[in-house]
């Protein structure tokens, strides 16, 4: 590894910390949201077992929508690390 000045070393370290914090905090929201969606779907399936197919499809759809905020933070983390 090449020699870094103090400022460069701090910037380099801050990159990794920033990427980790971005991904870690960014994963909280979608985690909670997807949990709620799963809970709702499970309750609905318990109440109406004959609707399982439809509910599963809708559940996956809304989970994919809820997941997108987590993916934004994943993208930001990759961009911080790679560029």
């Amino acid at each position: 590894m090449t020699d870094l000045t103090m400022a460069q070393a701090v910037a380099e370290a801050a990159k990794y910390i920033g990427a980790g914090v971005a991904m870690g905090i960014g994963a909280i929201g979608p985690g909670i949201g997807e949990g709620h969606i799963g809970q709702g779907a499970m309750e609905a399936m318990g109440r109406q077992p004959e609707m399982v197919g439809t509910i599963t499809a809708r559940m996956l759809l809304s989970q994919a929508v809820a997941e997108s905020t987590g993916l934004y933070s994943l993208l930001i983390a990759f961009m911080i690390l790679l560029f």
Partner: peptide
């Protein structure tokens, strides 16, 4: 913005991962 970035994030982010 959200419409396009959702798909892009899934495909590109998944690929890098």
């Amino acid at each position: 913005v959200s419409h396009s970035l959702r798909l892009f994030g899934n495909i590109a982010g998944g690929g890098i991962m």
